[in-house]
């Protein structure tokens, strides 16, 4: 039973700047709950990326560093190697992790750096105005593909969780969503597992969270939340790689 109606201690009391119905702030809250439960507040360092989540330091009361666009995994590598006792996590969007930072992310994963990467996948570049991102699904209309994403011209969506699950250095790799209460609770469990993988020095841990972008999807908050169910048909949820084995306690 999760603890409800209590504000996590590491969540600052600032009002979120996200649009109504954005799932970023649900993930922020879950992240704070996990940091509190694992007692990591003194030694956690977060890497905020460029995107809507670049103001992570306004909301989470741990040390946050802002990395250049896409370079979070590389900066995190440096931090973790210099100070192995720290718990380093990156909080990136799909444009940051899978587009401009693809090289940094894939090489950090293949080196098996002991960091935790969270990727918020909302299938568009949210902050810059809804352009096509690598994870944009087919036929989705964005500002740079006004007729919908055509596989002949713009290619197919990139499925990062499936890609990373084939890497030997990756210890934990999963995809989840936060559009129903059940999935919120599951996401928290997986988030905890992603941090435990780092605490046990198993290797790179990756968690992809399907999110909404109501403004750039041109929907209201509720229909955007329901639209995530359609994304799940393209990006299936699940744990793709887990070195903990099937019977580990969370």
């Amino acid at each position: 039973m999760p603890e409800v109606f209590k504000l996590p201690k590491s969540l600052k009391k600032n009002i979120f700047h996200y649009c109504p119905g954005c799932h970023h702030s649900i993930v922020h809250r879950l992240l704070c709950e996990v940091i509190d439960e694992l007692n990591l507040r003194d030694r956690a360092v977060g890497l905020a990326s460029i995107g809507c989540a670049c103001f992570l330091y306004f909301y989470i009361d741990v040390d946050i560093v802002e990395a250049p666009h896409g370079r979070s995994c590389s900066v995190a590598t440096g931090m973790k190697r210099a100070r192995p006792e720290l718990v380093v996590f990156t909080y990136q969007g799909d444009g940051d992790f899978a587009a401009i930072g693809l090289g940094d992310s894939l090489h950090a994963a293949s080196r098996g750096e002991s960091i935790t990467a969270l990727m918020i996948n909302n299938t568009v570049y949210g902050m810059t105005g809804g352009q096509l991102s690598p994870t944009t699904v087919l036929q989705q209309k964005t500002t740079t593909t006004p007729l919908g994403r055509d596989p002949k011209r713009e290619g197919f969506p990139l499925k990062m969780a499936e890609v990373l699950s084939n890497f030997e250095g990756v210890a934990f790799c999963a995809r989840t969503a936060v559009n129903t209460p059940k999935r919120v609770i599951e996401t928290k469990k997986l988030l905890k597992k992603a941090f435990l993988a780092q605490l046990e020095n198993r290797g790179f841990s990756y968690l992809e969270i399907l999110s909404t972008c109501p403004v750039n999807w041109k929907m209201d908050a509720l229909s955007a939340t329901k639209h995530v169910d359609k994304l799940i048909e393209i990006f299936p949820l699940g744990v793709f790689k887990d070195t903990f084995g099937g019977n580990s306690e969370i």
């Binding site: 109606f5 009002i15 996200y18 109504p20 970023h24 209460p181 919120v184 609770i185």
Partner: peptide
């Protein structure tokens, strides 16, 4: 759980 803004406390 579902509130993105932590309104219910």
């Amino acid at each position: 759980l579902m509130c993105p803004e932590v309104v219910f406390v």
